Deep mutational scan, measured.
Amino acid sequence: MEVRTIKVFTTVDNINLHTQVVDMSMTYGQQFGPTYLDGADVTKIKPHNSHEGKTFYVLPNDDTLRVEAFEYYHTTDPSFLGRYMSALNHTKKWKYPQVNGLTSIKWADNNCYLATALLTLQQIELKFNPPALQDAYYRARAGEAANFCALILAYCNKTVGELGDVRETMSYLFQHANLDSCKRVLNVVCKTCGQQQTTLKGVEAVMYMGTLSYEQFKKGVQIPCTCGKQATKYLVQQESPFVMMSAPPAQYELKHGTFTCASEYTGNYQCGHYKHITSKETLYCIDGALLTKSSEYKGPITDVFYKENSYTTTIK
């Protein structure tokens, strides 16, 4: 009895394709271990004539594949690729409408935090270190965002349907971005203890939790000093293409032309909904596939993004 075979390709990165001759009487799992086709788990399936010449994702289970996976995804987590594939199996079914010149995501599976993050990423200057993220990001900007969303979920250790947080998501993504040249110098002034300067680099240099107003941050924000008295913390120097200011959701007025974009969060910790506000020729609110415009805006804002380049204080 002759062994019926077909020729397929296996890959971990969709760049390096490895030619395989597979036995049609055995499952993919018996031949390769966990195997995925377009995100779908085909591990328990036997090869079919229609699979001839198709590319299958496999887990990096030998040295060659491990090197290829690390170079593309910059992670050695053995569960990463499987999590990416199972997320992709959902995100490829989502709709990605162009809204006001940006790629958004039609609401499904509690994905409003991903839509808000995706919209924000198209408006701030950011370059990702893992080629996987950078490639998928370019495709997302062009309207094909399924891979990018699935990668975000995998890097953030999230599953489809789980509630997510924009600030946490951005923080994970910033860790995989090139923020080497970003720098922030802060000064804390206390009447009792004097003053202390701190220099922050990388992710810490672009994120701040405690106030939404970048102007206020430049002037000074009140913080408790270690001595128990009130101290003032203010920005001395900022070198970065953008800054992200966050605070627990509270009524906040966004003035046209003073910011790049913002995240609105309605609801409580267990259950809520994100919308995205962007400042173009007027203010726009993007909620999944829905767009509304207004000249002014007041609502429960939790993150505001500002364009920056270089700032030095005039406070002496």
Score class of each variant (00 low, 15 high):
3 V>H: 14
3 V>D: 15
4 R>I: 14
4 R>T: 14
4 R>K: 15
8 V>C: 12
11 T>L: 02
12 V>Y: 08
20 Q>Y: 08
21 V>E: 10
23 D>E: 10
23 D>P: 07
27 T>Q: 10
29 G>R: 03
30 Q>I: 14
30 Q>F: 04
30 Q>S: 07
31 Q>C: 10
31 Q>P: 01
34 P>F: 13
38 D>T: 08
40 A>Y: 11
41 D>R: 03
42 V>A: 08
44 K>G: 12
45 I>M: 09
49 N>K: 10
51 H>Y: 04
51 H>F: 05
52 E>H: 10
56 F>H: 00
57 Y>G: 01
60 P>N: 09
63 D>L: 07
73 Y>H: 01
74 H>S: 05
75 T>I: 10
76 T>M: 15
77 D>P: 02
78 P>R: 06
83 R>I: 02
84 Y>F: 08
84 Y>A: 00
85 M>P: 00
87 A>K: 05
90 H>E: 11
91 T>I: 04
91 T>C: 15
105 I>N: 06
105 I>E: 01
113 Y>T: 05
114 L>S: 00
115 A>V: 01
116 T>S: 02
118 L>M: 11
119 L>I: 03
119 L>P: 00
120 T>W: 10
124 I>F: 05
124 I>Y: 01
124 I>R: 03
130 P>N: 11
133 L>N: 01
138 Y>T: 13
143 G>S: 03
143 G>E: 02
146 A>T: 01
147 N>D: 05
148 F>T: 03
149 C>F: 04
152 I>V: 12
152 I>H: 03
156 C>R: 00
156 C>A: 07
157 N>C: 10
162 E>Q: 12
163 L>T: 09
164 G>H: 02
164 G>N: 00
164 G>V: 07
165 D>H: 07
167 R>G: 08
167 R>V: 08
168 E>S: 14
168 E>F: 09
170 M>V: 05
171 S>M: 15
172 Y>S: 14
173 L>D: 03
173 L>P: 01
174 F>I: 05
174 F>C: 08
176 H>S: 03
176 H>Y: 08
176 H>T: 02
178 N>I: 07
181 S>Y: 09
182 C>Q: 04
182 C>I: 07
186 L>Y: 13
187 N>S: 14
187 N>D: 13
189 V>Q: 10
189 V>T: 09
193 C>G: 02
194 G>H: 03
195 Q>W: 12
195 Q>V: 12
195 Q>S: 13
196 Q>M: 07
199 T>Y: 09
200 L>I: 15
203 V>D: 04
205 A>T: 05
206 V>H: 04
209 M>N: 15
211 T>H: 12
211 T>V: 14
212 L>G: 08
216 Q>G: 05
217 F>P: 06
217 F>L: 12
218 K>N: 02
219 K>V: 06
220 G>Q: 03
224 P>R: 12
224 P>Y: 13
224 P>W: 13
226 T>C: 10
228 G>A: 01
234 Y>T: 11
235 L>T: 03
236 V>G: 06
236 V>W: 05
238 Q>M: 03
238 Q>A: 04
238 Q>F: 03
239 E>V: 10
239 E>K: 10
239 E>H: 12
243 V>R: 05
244 M>W: 11
245 M>K: 03
246 S>N: 04
247 A>R: 04
251 Q>A: 12
253 E>R: 10
254 L>W: 03
258 T>G: 11
263 S>D: 10
265 Y>V: 08
265 Y>F: 10
270 Q>G: 12
270 Q>D: 05
272 G>A: 07
272 G>W: 08
274 Y>E: 04
275 K>L: 02
277 I>F: 04
278 T>C: 09
280 K>F: 14
281 E>D: 09
281 E>C: 13
283 L>C: 08
283 L>H: 12
287 D>S: 05
289 A>Q: 07
290 L>Y: 07
290 L>R: 10
291 L>R: 08
294 S>Q: 12
295 S>D: 14
299 G>R: 06
300 P>T: 14
301 I>G: 04
305 F>Y: 04
312 T>A: 14
313 T>Y: 12
314 T>N: 12
314 T>M: 12
